[in-house]
């Protein structure tokens, strides 16, 4: 459904796509490097074993911080409300996101629509800590995801299976979460997606190279990432469970 297109890029997309940040602009004088994949996936590693809470204002963000959340997701409405009301849902108001950034010391994440690279540029300019390119919002592009390598800010993306997870990583995601069914309070979808990813990884881990080539084609995943996943016996980036998780009893450790 969301495979990267192989054919020529439509002219309109080429004209509006953000220019890659020049290498020189990413570098400080000397040779310290900002926004490397190491620091992007590294922040996800620091979040492990923690809980990321959806919050809609600074007061909720403070409650989450006091309760031990390792990060907060700044949203205009929680997914349950977005689902109920329908309509088009977009990136949250930058002023609201900034008020949450000012209120807490833990990392603040925010969501952008799938494929909406300008929303992502805005969040990067605000100095958000992580961007969720999220299926909870209305997609802005039916086929293409954001080229996440072009940003200094790291991205987390949802996935339902191994192929989808590896496609997102190849686009630059430094962190994967299961999709689940946001806002339902029903954990079954998150469990299904997590089970599916783990079972596909276990299957790949016993394959030889010839089988991996065929399997990469079957699940539409880049071969080198599939091979690395098979070797590690886990995704090459941190994976969180999300979607329909509503009570502490549902947290998977």
């Amino acid at each position: 459904m969301s495979t990267p297109a192989n054919g020529p890029v439509p002219a309109v997309a080429a004209a509006t796509a953000p220019a890659a940040i020049p290498r020189s602009a990413q570098r400080d004088p000397g040779n310290s490097k900002l926004g490397t994949f190491g620091v992007k996936s590294g922040l996800a590693q620091m979040l492990k074993g923690g809980v990321i809470m959806d919050v809609i204002n600074p007061e909720q963000a403070r409650i989450a911080e006091e309760a031990g959340a390792c990060a907060v997701m700044a949203l205009e409405r929680v997914p349950a409300d977005i689902r109920r009301e329908g309509g088009v849902s977009r990136m949250s108001d930058p002023a609201m996101i900034k008020s949450i950034v000012d209120a807490v010391t833990i990392p603040v994440m925010a969501k952008v629509r799938i494929g909406h690279f300008v929303e992502a540029q805005i969040l990067q300019a605000i100095g958000i800590d992580y961007i969720d390119e999220s299926e909870v919002l209305t997609p802005a592009d039916e086929e293409h995801h954001i080229n996440k390598h072009n940003y200094k800010v790291p991205f987390v993306c949802g996935a339902r299976n191994l192929g989808e997870a590896l496609r997102r990583i190849s686009e630059g995601a430094a962190f994967i979460r299961t999709k689940g069914e946001a806002g339902t309070g029903n954990v079954v979808e998150a469990v299904r997606h997590q089970r599916s990813i783990m079972s596909e990884i276990r299957k790949a881990s016993v394959m030889n190279e010839e089988e991996l080539y065929a399997y990469a084609k079957e699940i539409q995943a880049p071969f080198h990432l599939l091979k690395e996943t098979a070797r590690l016996k886990r995704l090459p980036v941190v994976n969180f469970a999300a979607g329909g998780i509503a009570t502490p009893g549902m947290c998977i450790r």
């Binding site: 400080d28 000397g30 310290s32 990067q124």
Partner: peptide
């Protein structure tokens, strides 16, 4: 001082 160099956008690697 926590987060002394700023948010994640300012995170870096250096020798």
């Amino acid at each position: 001082v926590r987060n002394g160099w700023g948010s994640q956008v300012e995170s870096f690697e250096a020798p």
